[in-house]
């Protein structure tokens, strides 16, 4: 029921967002009469499909099992899914003491993603209108530190997962690293690597599940 409500809300709001996405383009047309020709719009669309089409399809499905319906739709409306929404989802689940894949985990994923969206909108609006002057005053050394936020987050989260469930999560982490290195070496694009890391992880989870069931025969 919760998933159904999330789906309805997501589909309606994202359809409105699709329209909103073209508002600046339509404004320029109505106010100044400037618009690309039909063939040019078709060329731009083909360019976009060629460059980003695989990502449009593969990335949402890759992140879906971890985020659920609400978390996914809230996250894909705003982007920065990997480096911003996922840590927020994971932190919300951890704080509430729930696990991903459970009904409670799905609700907390939605709450975490929606909270992070509010944070981003407020902060980016502040920076757009007031803060750009403040940011430009920051010393270069502080700005340089911004580049290392992403590795610091992921390093911390992986350690947290490993500590939470050593037996299940460490094999997944090792398999993820190995899969990445091997696929990178054969020159595969990162979009496909992400998907394959998740798929290999599913097989590893299955292996761990089967092994632990063999060791612990049912009473």
């Amino acid at each position: 029921m919760f998933d159904k409500k999330c789906l309805t809300l997501g589909l309606i709001s994202m359809c409105v967002a699709v329209f909103a996405s073209f508002c600046p383009a339509l404004y320029l047309y109505f106010a100044y009469g400037v618009i690309p020709s039909g063939p040019d719009i078709a060329s731009i669309a083909s360019l976009m499909v060629a460059g980003y089409g695989v990502g449009w399809i593969l990335q949402p499905i890759t992140f879906y099992p971890a985020m659920g319906v609400g978390g996914s739709l809230a996250s894909w409306t705003t982007g920065n899914v990997a480096d911003l929404r996922m840590p927020a989802v994971s932190a919300a689940q951890k704080s509430a003491g729930v696990e991903g894949g459970t009904p409670e985990g799905t609700v907390m994923a939605t709450m975490g993603a929606a909270t992070s969206n509010v944070v981003t909108v407020i902060w980016l609006t502040f920076i757009t209108f007031i803060g750009s002057v403040l940011i430009s005053l920051l010393p270069a050394s502080v700005k340089a530190g911004f580049s290392y936020i992403a590795p610091a987050i992921f390093g911390a989260i992986i350690v947290d997962y490993a500590m939470k469930n050593l037996k299940n999560n460490v094999p997944l982490i090792i398999a993820g690293f190995i899969t990445y290195i091997v696929l990178k070496a054969v020159g595969m694009s990162t979009v496909w690597i992400t998907l394959l890391v998740v798929i290999v992880g599913m097989f590893v989870s299955r292996g761990v599940f089967v092994l632990s069931n063999k060791k612990k025969p049912e009473a």
């Binding site: 890759t62 992140f63 099992p65 971890a66 990997a82 480096d83 996922m86 994971s90 696990e99 991903g100 894949g101 459970t102 985990g105 992403a150 590795p151 992921f154 390093g155 989260i157 992986i158 997962y161 299940n168 999560n169 997944l172 982490i173 398999a175 993820g176 690293f177 990445y180 290195i181 990162t190 690597i193 992400t194 890391v197 998740v198 290999v200 992880g201 599913m202 590893v204 989870s205 299955r206 761990v208 599940f209």
Partner: peptide
């Protein structure tokens, strides 16, 4: 449950090594 939770761990493994 293990399958869904495992996807999250795999994704973060990818995100870390990619960084």
């Amino acid at each position: 449950k293990m399958l869904m939770g495992g996807c999250l761990v795999s994704l973060f493994s990818y995100l870390l090594i990619n960084q």
